[in-house]
């Protein structure tokens, strides 16, 4: 017992001294990711963030590791077990906010970065990565409103938390903007931006829920559905695949699902991309160069942190005029002519 205590103390001291040392050489730099309960292969933000680490492995020659959380009780434990073993710990998701903050405060020499969360006031050793997702969602809402035949769009979320509802807000706003421009009455089912209420599966892992919620929205008349719930959306895609893409189209979130879900790529109208890989890469790069500082990294249309995915197979189905309008709106959002969000 006594000996293991000593060994442990020694190990901790050693680890701390390494950390406080100089910018590490590339091969010694280790970036670690802690996922939320969705897992590393969620076709969504955990996976996209991991892609950022992998890109850094390829381009910067660092080492990368990840730890999957199976339950909420794992968050703290998972972060703790990486302490001292990684130069940068990247936690993924709003739900890890509390655990990351506690760990960062207890270990001021450890660098952290959290995807989808920002602290106010900022912590000196945490770089929060947040995304103006509503900008891209606005474009998706406009596109969907232009493409719907039934006049109804559907949206549902995982949990009623800001990183989810921001998609729903932007989508809603985009559709409304279309109505205003064209005098149409396209409805968005599943989210009421005023009351902050809507459809939520209350989880980020049940594909069955994704299928059932999409089915409900389809039954209510929606022919384009935006599931904002990580892998839950794959269930919705499966339904669209069975019904046929002329009856139901899906808009992907986080990654370009046309690429990450190749088996059902034809059901995706487009995807609202959060380029977490880009921001993760950016943070890793800054940590290696020694320019890392706590605060907020915002991904927006202007810096490519968020964007609408290419239309791929839908390219020919979308009228050229609509494409032109989208390009204009995109520019207007970037230069501030159109204000997205409140």
């Amino acid at each position: 017992m006594k000996r293991s205590l000593k060994t442990w103390l020694a190990a901790t001291l050693l680890a701390t001294s390494t950390l406080t040392g100089f910018g590490a050489a590339a091969a010694d730099f280790t970036a670690c990711e802690v996922t939320d309960t969705g897992g590393i292969d969620d076709n969504s933000f955990n996976q996209t963030a991991w892609k950022g680490v992998q890109d850094a492995q390829a381009k910067l020659g660092i080492k990368g590791r990840y730890l999957e959380s199976q339950a909420e009780t794992d968050y703290t434990a998972n972060i703790n077990s990486l302490l001292g073993q990684c130069d940068l710990i990247i936690t993924v998701g709003f739900l890890l906010g509390d655990a990351t903050k506690a760990a960062a405060e207890a270990n001021p020499n450890q660098k952290f970065s959290i995807v989808d969360y920002a602290y106010d006031p900022v912590l000196p050793n945490v770089a929060g990565q947040v995304y103006a997702t509503d900008q891209a969602a606005f474009l998706a809402g406009y596109l969907a409103a232009g493409m719907t035949k039934s006049g109804s769009l559907g949206v549902f979320g995982g949990i009623n938390i800001p990183p989810v509802t921001i998609f729903m807000d932007g989508f809603h706003q985009g559709a409304e903007y279309y109505n205003k421009q064209k005098g149409t009455k396209v409805k968005v089912l599943g989210w009421d931006p005023a009351k902050r209420e809507g459809l939520f599966t209350n989880n980020f892992d049940s594909l069955d829920d994704g299928r059932a919620f999409a089915q409900n929205l389809y039954d209510e008349g929606a022919d384009i559905v935006l599931p904002v719930a990580g892998p839950v959306g794959l269930g919705s895609a499966a339904l669209a695949n069975e019904l046929g893409v002329d009856k139901l189209k899906i808009i992907g979130v986080d990654a370009d699902l046309y690429l990450t879900d190749p088996e059902r790529k034809h059901v995706y109208l487009t995807s609202i991309m959060k380029r977490m890989d880009a921001t993760v890469m950016e943070v890793i790069d800054s940590a290696m160069k020694g320019t890392f500082k706590g605060g907020v990294v915002v991904g927006s249309l202007s810096n490519g942190g968020v964007d609408l995915a290419p239309l791929h197979d839908m390219e020919t189905m979308v009228p050229d005029e609509l494409k032109k309008e989208l390009a204009t709106i995109r520019q207007q959002i970037i230069d501030g002519t159109i204000k997205v969000g409140n």
């Binding site: 199976q70 339950a71 909420e72 009780t73 703290t76 739900l95 509390d98 949990i159 209350n202």
Partner: peptide, 14 residues
């Protein structure tokens, strides 16, 4: 002792 708060599913299958 561990979480300091409750959220949905804090029972974690215990």
């Amino acid at each position: 002792g561990v979480l300091g708060r409750a959220s949905s599913g804090f029972s974690a299958g215990i």
